[in-house]
Amino acid sequence: MSDNSQDFIIAVMAKDRPGIIAAITQTVFELGGNVTELSQTVMGGYFTLILRATLPAERKESVIKQHLEEDWPDLALAACVRRYSPERLFEPELDTAAYFLTIQGEDRPGLIALITRYLAERQINIEDLYTRTEGDAITLILQIHPQNRQSAEHLRADLQNFGERQGIAIHLLHRDILRATSEVGAIRRMVRQGGCLS
């Protein structure tokens, strides 16, 4: 891309069907852009996608949105477009490890809000979240990244009390434990790269 280009973040939602990603990436291409990152998921028959693309800097967000929503009327896409800004509002310290927080218990309204508020108050960022309900039971798995080692330690110390107060089973798993049991890469390299214990 030329120097006169700009990264955009584009989010799109639609009822799921074949051809959505093909349509979106076609539009980005026709607008002179190149997709550099993309992630999608489908839930309850609804498709959602977020992508990062480099486009000519003069492109307006409203024009990109308009093309996405109007070029493919059959798909009924709902788009949201922002110019990419490199400034980060949350940056965990380098020596802080990532964790998986698992919550299992009886489902009830407000549970996810309660847990995520609890994490937000402790400066713990949620990088990924998955929920599964089976009957009355709910399982939440959150990939989290505390801002610093202190907030990780506080979280660990407080988790059991929090779980007992709320009547849920809550556990913290270090990401490296899961990598160790699920991947085939060398452990020594994993520990060296992690740097969380240095």
């Binding site: 998986f100 998955y130 399982t139 798995i141 990939q143 798993l173 899961l178 990598r179 049991t181 699920s182």
Partner: peptide, 12 residues
């Protein structure tokens, strides 16, 4: 995200 089954199996 890792596979949910892997996470739950490790937790167990």
């Amino acid at each position: 995200m890792m596979r949910i089954e892997d996470i739950l199996m490790t937790l167990r």
